[in-house]
């Protein structure tokens, strides 16, 4: 490159003068400015990554059709659930799995393997800012999709407004927090970007089969259903569905919240203990 480009301007005007009190330096305080800068870069990257964008944006929409088909085949009689109140929570579940969980495992692993995470840690951003900001674009997409799909679905399937919007909100917020942390935990156990497609499979399969995304647990045998209620996404699906069906009792609601929070904390603990900031070499 052209060496005369400007190597000779004053570089560090404040070098000697700056021996005063430390700049910034308040520990434990999140900086919105830093989060915004990181999230903006991450959004740019997501938009440029075609396959990630497809998974995040289109897959949940496309799968909604098959969702409806599978729900229509299930025998819902006596469950108090209609096709509409089965499909709507399923769509949110799909969004959480694809737009949030799957996307974020890829993001965390890719940034780690590119040494971006390590480089960022040499700067001022703290660990929570780095991981949180990287998740923001996917979370924003997930939220927007949920709103669009729920509104559209409610109109098309003739479901109407939820009677318990608080449960809907709790389900979406808890689901997003849980999926973000589970994604970081999965990334901790994923060695390479290629393997990310494999390490996301267990949770995806377990969720789609056992958490009532495609088929409500109400049609399962009781013992199996009881076990499935302990899976990470099941309480989220129950909360979401009850926003319309209002089937969850007060105790049932607490139980769902507890299971969801438990999984979220377990994921957070795994991240704290096991998350790697640079590749194994």
């Amino acid at each position: 490159m052209d060496g005369g480009e400007g190597m000779s301007t004053t570089i560090n005007d404040g070098g000697t003068a700056r021996t005063g009190p430390p700049r910034d330096g308040r520990p434990g305080r999140l900086s919105l400015r830093r989060i915004r800068a990181l999230a903006r870069a991450e959004l740019t990257l997501l938009v440029r990554n075609r396959s990630a964008l497809f998974v995040a944006l289109l897959l949940p929409v496309c799968l909604t059709a098959s969702l409806k088909a599978s729900v229509e085949q299930a025998d819902l009689s006596g469950t108090g659930i209609s096709v509409g109140t089965a499909v709507l929570p399923g769509m949110v579940g799909m969004v959480l799995m694809f737009a949030v969980y799957s996307t974020l495992v890829g993001v965390y692993v890719a940034r780690r393997e590119e040494l971006v995470l390590k480089r960022l840690r040499t700067g001022e951003a703290d660990d929570l800012e780095i991981l949180g900001a990287a998740a923001l674009p996917a979370l924003a997409i997930g939220l927007a999709q949920s709103v669009v799909l729920l509104t559209g679905g409610a109109l098309l399937l003739d479901v109407g407004a939820p009677g318990r919007p608080d449960l809907l909100l709790a389900g979406v917020v808890l689901g997003m927090a849980m999926m973000t942390l589970l994604a970081a935990a999965s990334a901790a156990l994923t060695r390479t970007t290629e393997l990310a497609q494999l390490t996301t499979l267990p949770l995806m399969l377990v969720t789609f089969i056992g958490s009532g995304v495609f088929v409500p647990l109400e049609v399962f045998p009781d013992r199996l259903a009881d076990f499935c209620r302990l899976l990470p996404m099941t309480p989220i699906m129950d909360l979401l569905r009850s926003a319309w069906t209002e089937q969850l009792s007060g105790l049932g609601t607490l139980r769902s919240l507890a299971i969801a929070v438990g999984w979220t904390l377990l994921a957070a603990w795994t991240v704290r203990k096991r998350f790697r900031w640079e590749p194994r070499r």
Binding site: L38, A41, T44, L115, E124, E129
Partner: peptide, 23 residues
């Protein structure tokens, strides 16, 4: 660092802007 860690799909300026944002 011995090996820089930058997202390969960002431009030079976007990378610097991001870094300025956390500094």
């Amino acid at each position: 660092l011995q090996e820089g860690g930058f997202p390969s799909e960002l431009t030079v300026e976007e990378t610097a802007t991001m870094w300025a944002g956390v500094t």
